[in-house]
């Protein structure tokens, strides 16, 4: 009977965590925003979350684009279809790799940092101290970080795809000698703004909400000890990566499935 009890206990814990996370998000984003005070905080967090993640996103995007082109070329050239390389690279990046890899890198780079930062603020009583100063930590600390994450990730994903395409162009056209004209024109003929680019952006907005939410909640809910914070950081990366991959399947099925 033990395992049934354990199952019940785990289920209750899961649901109570989801409940607490929803309350936190609700408290943070439903509140009336104060633009005069909130905007500088938001800008600061866009810097910390978005600008500082640029390097890893750009470098990864470039290399993934290059690898895609190289791998794609060796397959396509067997069918004499190497002119479609641009189509292959662009569709893979825009529909899948851009949003997904960006979200995974974001979880590792910015998400873990968010969790650790908020967890430490909790452990050093900074959050309690805000509350005692009659400043709501949900609005002062959580909300700007949440919005900054939701704002930054789609931008990062678009930059990832763009740089990846340039990397693909570099390898495909400059190195492997695919015709530049057909590389771009076949790409342009097959990529649609609404179907591919917009759906990719929608995907990355969904991932942004999920990853940022998990990251700040794990920090906010962390056990305020060094062990608790390290656990929370690990959980952020694991849970948000799994959530991104799972959601990606659902979204892909909804968007491109039929």
């Amino acid at each position: 009977m033990d395992w049934i009890q354990n199952l019940g206990k785990n289920t209750i814990e899961r649901f109570s965590a989801i409940g607490r996370a929803s309350f936190m998000l609700f408290g943070a984003i439903v509140a009336k925003p104060n633009f005069v005070k909130g905007f500088p905080l938001f800008t600061k967090q866009v810097y910390v979350i978005g600008v500082l993640s640029l390097v890893i996103i750009l470098v990864s995007g470039l290399f993934i684009g290059m690898v895609l082109a190289l791998q794609g070329y060796t397959v396509l050239v067997d069918y004499g279809a190497e002119d479609s390389l641009g189509q292959m690279v662009s569709l893979s990046l825009l529909r899948e790799l851009g949003p997904v890899v960006t979200a995974l890198l974001f979880a590792g780079r910015a998400g873990s940092a968010l969790t650790a930062e908020i967890g430490l603020m909790k452990a050093t009583e900074q959050l309690t101290s805000l509350e005692m100063m009659a400043v709501d930590p949900l609005r002062r600390v959580i909300a700007p970080r949440f919005w900054a994450g939701v704002f930054s990730m789609p931008i990062l994903a678009m930059l990832f795809s763009s740089v990846g395409l340039l990397g693909g162009h570099l390898v495909g056209v400059e190195w492997l000698g695919v015709d530049q004209g057909s590389f771009w024109s076949i790409m342009q003929a097959s990529v649609e703004f609404e179907g591919d680019i917009l759906n990719g952006i929608i995907k990355s907005i969904v991932f942004a909400i999920v990853v940022t939410w998990i990251a700040i909640f794990r920090g906010y809910d962390a056990i305020p000890t060094s062990e608790g914070i390290s656990q929370a950081t690990t959980q952020t990366v694991v849970q948000s990566s799994l959530a991104v991959l799972g959601l990606d399947f659902v979204l892909t099925a909804l968007m491109f499935g039929s």
Partner: peptide
């Protein structure tokens, strides 16, 4: 929150914003 504006608390760790 209105009541809290008139009270304040010194935490054990100081809780300065780092």
């Amino acid at each position: 929150y209105a009541v809290r504006e008139k009270m304040s608390m010194l935490f054990q760790s100081g809780a300065l914003f780092t």
